[in-house]
Simulated scan of single mutants.
Amino acid sequence: MRAQPVPEPAMTQLLRAQSVVDLHDTLLASPAWPADASLLPADPLWHWVATNHRNNCLLWAEEDLARRTTVGAEEIAANKRAIDGFNQARNDATERVDEILLTALGLVDAASARTNAPVSTVPPGARLNSETAGSIIDRMSIMALKVHAMRAQTLRTDVDAEHIASSQEKLARLEQQRADLGSCLEALIADAQAGRAYFKVYRQFKMYNDPRFNPELVKEARQSKARGG
Rank of each mutant, 00 (worst) to 15 (best):
A133T: 00
K146H: 13
A161I: 03
Q168E: 15
R173G: 04
R127F: 05
I137E: 01
D160N: 12
R139Q: 08
S167I: 07
S183H: 11
A149P: 01
A172W: 05
N129E: 03
M143W: 06
T154P: 15
R178G: 02
A172V: 06
A149S: 08
R127G: 12
L145C: 04
L181H: 05
E131Y: 03
A126Y: 00
M150C: 08
N129W: 06
A187P: 01
N129R: 03
E186F: 10
L128M: 03
D158M: 13
R173Y: 06
R178F: 02
M140A: 02
A192C: 05
E131M: 09
A165W: 06
T132L: 02
L185G: 09
L128A: 03
S183A: 09
R127T: 14
M150N: 08
I164Q: 11
E169P: 04
T157I: 14
C184V: 07
S166N: 11
L181Y: 10
A179V: 10
N129I: 00
R156G: 08
L181S: 08
R139A: 07
S130F: 10
E131D: 06
R173S: 07
G125W: 08
D158H: 13
P124T: 02
I189Y: 02
R173P: 04
R173D: 15
R173F: 09
A161N: 11
E131W: 05
A133H: 05
L155T: 06
Q177E: 05
L181K: 11
I189S: 01
C184L: 12
Q177F: 13
S135L: 08
M150E: 15
S130Y: 12
R127S: 10
Q168C: 06
H148D: 09
T157C: 14
V159I: 12
A190T: 04
G125P: 07
R139Y: 09
V159C: 00
L128C: 01
S166E: 15
K146I: 08
M150G: 00
L145P: 03
P124G: 06
D138E: 08
A187I: 02
Q168K: 04
T132H: 01
V147C: 02
L181P: 13
G182H: 03
I142E: 11
A144D: 01
L185M: 01
A152M: 03
D180Y: 13
S141P: 03
Q177G: 12
S166L: 12
H148N: 14
R173C: 06
A133F: 00
E186H: 05
